[in-house]
Amino acid sequence: VTTYKLVINGKTLKGETTTKAVDAETSEKAFKQYANDNGVDGVWTYDDATKTFTVTEMV
């Protein structure tokens, strides 16, 4: 189990959250659901070296 981080650069929501998951794909699903639940829709990137997802909304 690995800890993954999500950085949110939204128009109205900014911040970070973490989750523990067995792999990046599992954490990505959880993070995308979290973003969707909070009305964040944007461009996703992933940095495997830091286990960090970033979602950026276009303004």
Rank of each mutant, 00 (worst) to 15 (best):
A49L: 12
T45Q: 08
T54P: 00
W44G: 00
T12R: 09
E25Q: 13
K20L: 14
T26M: 10
Y4H: 02
E25L: 12
D47K: 03
A30E: 12
T45Y: 08
L13K: 08
V55Y: 02
T2V: 12
A21C: 09
M58C: 12
Y34V: 04
N38V: 14
T45D: 08
V22E: 09
T52Q: 04
T50W: 04
K11E: 08
A49P: 06
T54F: 10
G42N: 00
Y46C: 01
K32H: 08
T56W: 09
A21G: 07
A24H: 10
F31K: 00
K51N: 07
T45M: 08
E16H: 10
V55W: 01
T17F: 15
A30W: 15
D23K: 04
T18W: 15
T45S: 11
S27T: 05
K5T: 14
N36I: 15
W44H: 00
K20D: 14
L13I: 13
V59M: 12
N9G: 04
K29F: 08
K14T: 09
G10D: 03
T19G: 05
Y46T: 00
T54W: 08
T2F: 14
N38G: 04
G15P: 04
V40W: 08
Y34N: 01
T18F: 15
D47N: 10
E57R: 03
T56S: 08
T54L: 05
T19L: 15
T17Q: 09
Q33C: 06
T45G: 05
A35Y: 03
T2L: 11
K5V: 10
S27H: 02
N38K: 13
L6P: 02
V55R: 01
G15E: 11
S27F: 03
V1R: 09
Q33A: 11
F53W: 13
K20N: 12
N9F: 13
K51Q: 09
A21F: 05
T2P: 06
K51L: 09
V43E: 10
K14I: 09
G10R: 04
D48M: 08
G42C: 03
N38I: 15
Y4D: 02
N38D: 02
N38P: 01
L13Q: 08
A24M: 13
T45C: 08
V1S: 10
L13R: 07
T52C: 04
I8E: 02
L6A: 02
E28I: 10
D37M: 11
L6Y: 02
N9H: 10
D47A: 03
T56R: 05
V43Y: 11
V40P: 01
E57D: 08
V59P: 12
A24R: 15
K32Y: 05
M58R: 11
V59H: 12
K14Y: 09
V55I: 11
W44D: 00
D23L: 04
Q33W: 05
G15Y: 15
T12D: 09
G42R: 01
T26R: 06
M58F: 13
K11Y: 11
Q33N: 07
T26H: 09
V7R: 06
K29M: 10
T3E: 13
G10L: 15
A24E: 06
A30Q: 12
N36V: 14
F53V: 00
T54Q: 05
Q33L: 10
Y34A: 02
S27Q: 04
N9S: 07
T19E: 05
T54K: 04
Y4E: 03
A35V: 09
Y4S: 03
K20M: 14
I8V: 07
K14S: 10
T56V: 07
D48S: 11
E25P: 09
L6T: 02
K51G: 04
A24T: 10
N38S: 08
T2S: 11
K14F: 10
T50V: 05
L13N: 07
V43G: 03
E16L: 10
V1P: 10
G42K: 00
K29Q: 09
I8H: 02
V22W: 11
E25H: 11
N38Y: 12
T45K: 07
K14A: 07
K14C: 14
V55P: 00
V7G: 00
L6Q: 02
Y34I: 06
V22Q: 10
L13V: 12
D23A: 04
T3H: 06
V7I: 14
D37K: 10
A21K: 03
T19P: 02
T12A: 09
Y46L: 01
F53Y: 07
F31I: 02
V55A: 02
D37R: 10
K29V: 09
V1F: 14
E25S: 11
T26Y: 05
D23N: 11
D48H: 10
V22R: 11
S27K: 01
N38H: 14
S27Y: 03
T26S: 11
Y46R: 01
N9A: 08
T18L: 09
F53N: 00
A49M: 10
L13G: 08
T19Q: 09
M58E: 12
A21T: 05
T56H: 06
D41F: 15
L6F: 06
E16D: 06
T17A: 11
T18I: 09
K29S: 07
E57M: 08
G42M: 03
